[in-house]
Design a protein around this nucleic acid. Structure first.
Lengths: 251, 251
DNA sequence: CGCTTACTTGACATTGGTCAATTATGGTGG
DNA sequence: CCACCATAATTGACCAATGTCAAGTAAGCG
């Protein structure tokens, strides 16, 4: 399921990175792009459903998602699973592992995934040569923290219907920020089991809760995926405020 | 309740920082300490129960806790509260606010608190002049992320008794890492309401759950505070693994 | 065509929540 | 020192949200 592309010629050049063309991400100088291009040692293709990183393992790499969706999760010994966050194009993964050197969570592909691969060893070089990029890394980590804070609020204090509304609108807004303006409808590539494991609910109760949202015409659940039809009302129901940042860094 | 000390002479000098004497934190070069000392613009004393930062406000500062305990939390509109994490001596707060510029959570003092104050404006200067300190900031943010991941697992997937065992042992280990070796027993400065709001439980159920832990002689709850008497069994019950890092950065 | 995965649904069980009353305990003003 | 008050902890009775079990349907895939 995992396939590494090492040959320089086959790889996406950072200077032509399709993500950077989007207004969503900040502009980089030529020098910065040159460094990142050199910092990038390869590309990884992971098939849908494959596990990219495993809790407890050591990884010498950092990754940035180029295309596709995935999620981070932790397991308890008896198999109970908690999904921590979702990863979408532009997201950096593996930073947390820098601390203990050991991964504290696993990562799985929700769709086929393309990842840029970076060497962890050279991160310090990045901080030395390009302080702005170092600052970006801190920014990225702090943003992830904010998202986790909001998830914690949902899981801990929102009711089943509120937390479901929160999660679906959260994913909807994350995804739509990456879409062209005119994309009318798109489907979130998750199952109800993912929703359950993100929100700390059972799958049965998740199903019944989603059904209520469908009855209220806020979402549709078709073809093994979810389409959000009324994001604003969903946000309202959740008592949440979507992120408003214009541009963000990326590695 | 809040009181700022600006006069240079009254402040704790970073070179004599009592925290840095502990084996828990990494060594810094003279240059680094000089920079940090200059970066520090003052000290803030906050009385027990006072609110240091408020969700939605803008703060021009970062803080490091010198002495005392506090906690970060978020509120829903109707007052439901979720405690996100606890802050202890050596912890940095306010990094998250760098992103939107607006605080996404509030901070309250659990005990009287002394904080070192830094100017957020000068963070970029830190990254430029001392890349290692910049790296430390990323490290600190990534560590907070790991902790939040574990909290999310607790709140989402552990049972009431497991999550309570997790929280109390978590706080016990965090606190004991800051104590001298010989400190036999110390008390966590929290109420059962804090435990409830951290774990997403009601206060009544929290009380009954803590009572079970007391009956099993794993903790004591006296004088409005909790003493952990059997941390190992608590960790076992939670199905958790305490942090093992030897030294960490600090700002 | 038959298997597997995902989604549904109803009946019932249980964890954890709500309400309400009670008991410490420490602090404050007289 | 004492009466009074507020906060925190405790407990029992009852209730509601959510979990578990079980069975069934629908769609995708080799």
């Amino acid at each position: 399921m995992l396939n590494i592309v090492d040959e320089k010629q086959k790889r996406t050049k950072c200077r032509q990175c399709p993500l950077l063309k989007m207004k969503l991400f900040r502009d980089f100088s030529g020098d910065e792009l040159g460094f990142i291009e050199n910092f990038k040692t390869g590309e990884l293709n992971a098939g849908k459903g494959s596990t990219i990183l495993v809790e407890g393992s050591h990884s010498a790499h950092l990754f940035t998602v180029l295309t596709g969706w995935g999620f981070r999760y932790k397991l308890l010994e008896d198999g109970r699973r908690q999904i921590l966050n979702y990863i979408l194009p532009g997201d950096l993964i593996g930073l947390q592992g820098s601390i203990t050197g050991e991964m504290e969570h696993s990562i799985e592909a929700l769709t086929d995934l393309t990842l840029c691969v970076f060497e962890r060893d050279r991160v310090m070089e990045l901080f030395r040569k390009f302080p702005e990029l170092g600052y970006d890394l801190t920014w990225i980590a702090a943003r992830e923290e904010c998202i986790l804070d909001e998830h914690l609020l949902s899981v801990g204090r929102r009711t089943a219907i509120e937390k479901t509304a929160y999660l679906l609108s959260f994913l909807h807004f994350r995804a739509s920020a990456l879409m062209a303006q005119d994309t009318p409808r798109f489907s979130l590539p998750i199952t109800q089991q993912h929703v359950a494991d993100t929100l700390g609910l059972s799958i049965v109760h998740t199903n019944k809760t989603i059904r209520k949202l469908v009855d209220r015409k806020l979402v549709k659940w078709l073809d093994r995926g979810c389409t959000v039809t009324n994001p604003d009302e969903l946000v309202e129901l959740a008592g949440w405020e979507p992120e408003t940042t214009k541009t963000r860094p990326i590695l």
